[in-house]
Amino acid sequence: MTIERKEIEKLATLSRLAIDEKTITDVTGRLSSVLALVDQLQNADTESLQEVSRPFHISQRLRNDEVKETDQRDAFQAIAPQTHNGLFSVPKMIE
């Protein structure tokens, strides 16, 4: 299975990656070879099978509804790229 250049562009948009013109041909080639590998899956007979969950994990553990976290805003915001008055700053979002 080969992948079209246009498809790569769409995937890049979905995953918020800037793929430049120079590398797009290279990426297209490499992705096609990986897809050729994973296409081997299509030969497998999985008719009778469910999508798997794990073999020995039976169910999700549940946590009691008790507040245990304290305010650590200063520690977290100290490592943030940009903050202002306790808010994380990002380029303006346009609705």
Binding site: H84, N85, L87, F88, S89, V90, P91, K92
Partner: peptide, 12 residues
């Protein structure tokens, strides 16, 4: 409100 020019603020 009081935000740097061209920026939005996020409260999580």
């Amino acid at each position: 409100g009081d935000l740097p020019y061209g920026m939005s603020g996020v409260d999580l």
